[in-house]
Simulated scan of single mutants.
Amino acid sequence: MGAETPFADLDPDRILDAVESLGLQSDGRVLALNSYENRVYRIGMEQGPARVAKFYRPGRWTDEAIGEEHLFSAELKAADLSVVAPLEIRGRTLHPFQGHRFALFELRGGHAPEPGNREVLTHLGRVLGRMHAVGASGRFAHRGAIGIESHGEDPVHYLLENRWLPPELEGNFERLAEALFDAMDACYERAGDTTTLRLHGDCHPGNILWRDDQAHFVDLDDCLSGPAVQDLWMLAGRREDSREPWRWLLEGYETFRAFNRRELHLVEALRTLRLLHHNAWIARRWHDPAFPVAFPWFEAPRHWESVITQMQEQLAALQEPPPDPD
């Protein structure tokens, strides 16, 4: 299987053969679920509930890094947190099959939590406080950490070196990126020393299933090390509407774990890093046929004009005071 065509041989027969190689019996039904980085399928079973099979993108994570994701999920579940962790089958959670690596999960239903709702955000804060208490009890050895170099400078260099921007926008993009790096450095200086812990890493509402007035966290594929605020800021909304959401989140969070208010200086820096990293992520995956279909606007000049506008907005936001939830 060539690196340029990931998952090209992953047809329904191979998917079912992989699942049945674990001694399970499917009913032949395979439904692709929404996922770009990996391939995820709902598998009907002859006996018992349907399962979810997740096939990991070749070459992205080492087995050891995936193992840390699975162990972290298991630790969170053992702490009575509702995390959809991989199922252990035949003594392991990660399974090889004909050049692929996959894991099975329980199928969970639910919908994204309602943004701006006090009860919901306070509950999410409590859950994240408990999750971070577990995250702070150990360290990752094989997974990365969020930072300006890994999530900002490297993505910008990739986009420029591979000529993703229209030529007439490259100079403006590069100058803005340099200004953003300086402004983000200043944010990190204002935050001072922050505690690094194991995080969910991609804690946006789409990775939370809300059901029966509880949050069920899914997809720890991007778990990494970083400051606690990384798992909070995407739930608080945009800065102009975020004072009360921040108050509600931290009200719940600090029921279980103290929060360093200085980390709020990092919110706009982390938002900026997500913008840069996301665009480079799409560019790096463009050889995967799923990406041009999912992001048909990505190569259009209008998209890159929008990115530059967002960078300008972020440069202004990085100069402003941090959120004030008190």
Rank of each mutant, 00 (worst) to 15 (best):
R190N: 10
P6M: 06
M45Q: 11
L315Q: 01
E114I: 05
W281H: 05
I282C: 05
D222A: 12
G44I: 09
L199Y: 07
I146Q: 06
Q310M: 14
E263Y: 01
D202V: 05
M234N: 04
A145K: 13
A317G: 06
V19H: 00
L250T: 07
G201L: 01
T122I: 13
G192C: 09
F140C: 06
G48P: 03
R101V: 05
L94R: 14
A228N: 09
Q310Y: 11
Q98K: 14
I89H: 05
N34K: 10
E46V: 07
G44Q: 13
P296G: 03
A177N: 03
A183G: 02
P205Q: 09
R92I: 08
I43V: 07
Y253M: 06
D185C: 06
Q230W: 13
L33H: 12
E268C: 05
N117C: 11
L220I: 08
A236Y: 14
P115V: 12
A228Y: 01
I15S: 04
F295H: 15
D222S: 08
G125Y: 12
A50D: 15
E114H: 12
R42H: 04
C203P: 03
G44F: 02
R126D: 08
M234G: 02
D288W: 08
P296I: 07
L104F: 08
R257G: 00
R130C: 10
G135A: 05
L220S: 10
V267R: 07
P322W: 00
E268M: 11
G59P: 04
R163M: 09
L124M: 11
H70T: 07
E254F: 10
Y188L: 14
R175C: 10
P292K: 00
R57P: 02
C203D: 04
F72G: 02
